[in-house]
């Protein structure tokens, strides 16, 4: 009876509990993968920017431009807009952040269920630190996100995602590690944020509402589908504070060789985001996880 001094005590027990639910129910995994795969396969494969210019012929009366020139102009425009002529790879790179974001959002739900089903009542009577109750869920969400991101990356590659050709095998391996590090920070920050929002909630509907409220705007107010420079001026500030933007920049920078900011700066921003929200989550869980 001397374990209460260790602040990490019980953390793995709680993480393991969450992970069990997941690897023992592959259906959950498959369902959460559907959305990014739909984006990739349906949207990514159809919204083929290059084919807008190169598919078929344009006939402007009075002008006779050879197809070759049109193609060259198109390539140049794509390159200057997206940093690559391969829009599919541009989009696919953002999908790993997307899946991480979705997974993190749902972690808030699990604490609502724990409260409703009484599990939380039990946890609160054990000597486990309150912070561990939250961080166990955060850690679960991180590990889950990384596993799902891996699957998304594999599927994207199968569908034709092309990586930076100048990468050596070692460089590629290091890039993947870098991407995972960025995803870890993103998952940490977002799951801590959503869990904090759910600390006192017993109502899963309101939690769903919060998720849906933030889901679309954060997705579209980021560089996931288009570069920030294409956005109207009033949307740009949101994109610039949106952590998704920076993870996408890391992924594209490391895997595709196109980075708008600089990768170290991206990491700095993500680290601040992750640490700040984890700290807020831990502090508030001591205060608010218990009743009154």
């Amino acid at each position: 009876m001397t374990m209460a001094s260790n602040p990490l005590h019980g953390l793995w027990t709680l993480t393991d509990r969450e992970l069990k639910k997941w690897y023992k129910a592959p259906v959950v995994l498959i369902v959460t993968l559907i959305q990014p795969i739909v984006w990739l396969a349906f949207f990514g494969k159809s919204m083929n920017m290059a084919s807008i210019f190169t598919n078929g012929s344009v006939n402007i009366p009075g002008l006779n431009i050879p197809k070759q020139i049109i193609d060259q102009i198109a390539q140049a425009y794509l390159k200057s807009t997206f940093g690559t002529t391969d829009y599919f790879s541009f989009l696919a790179a953002s999908m790993v952040a997307q899946i991480t974001f979705f997974t993190a959002m749902n972690s808030g739900m699990s604490i609502v269920w724990d409260r409703r089903l009484g599990v939380l009542d039990k946890l609160l009577t054990t000597p486990v630190p309150r912070g561990s109750i939250i961080m166990g869920k955060v850690l679960n969400s991180v590990l889950r996100s990384l596993a799902q991101a891996t699957i998304v990356l594999i599927i994207a590659t199968l569908l034709g995602m092309k990586f930076n050709t100048s990468l050596t095998p070692l460089g590629f391996a290091l890039s993947i590690v870098g991407v995972y590090a960025a995803l870890t920070l993103l998952a940490l920050g977002f799951s801590a944020l959503y869990l904090t929002l759910a600390l006192r909630s017993t109502n899963w509907q309101s939690q769903m509402a919060i998720i849906n409220l933030l889901n679309m705007p954060l997705m579209f107010a980021s560089n996931s589908f288009y570069p920030i420079k294409m956005m109207p001026w009033w949307l740009r500030p949101i994109a610039y504070i949106n952590p998704l933007t920076y993870v996408n920049d890391v992924t594209r920078g490391l895997l595709l060789g196109i980075s708008t900011f600089s990768v170290p700066m991206d990491f700095l921003y993500l680290a601040v985001f992750a640490i700040a929200f984890s700290a807020i989550g831990i502090v508030l869980s001591w205060r608010f996880l218990s009743e009154g």
Partner: peptide, 30 residues
């Protein structure tokens, strides 16, 4: 650390087995 509690509402995790529930709580007590 010195008490055991059996709350009025059910508090076990329905998604886990009885064994897993016990082992989880044991882990939380270190």
């Amino acid at each position: 650390e010195s008490i055991g509690v059996v709350p009025q509402d059910f508090t076990s995790d329905e998604d886990l087995t009885g064994w897993e529930n016990l082992m989880m709580i044991a882990g939380l007590y270190g």
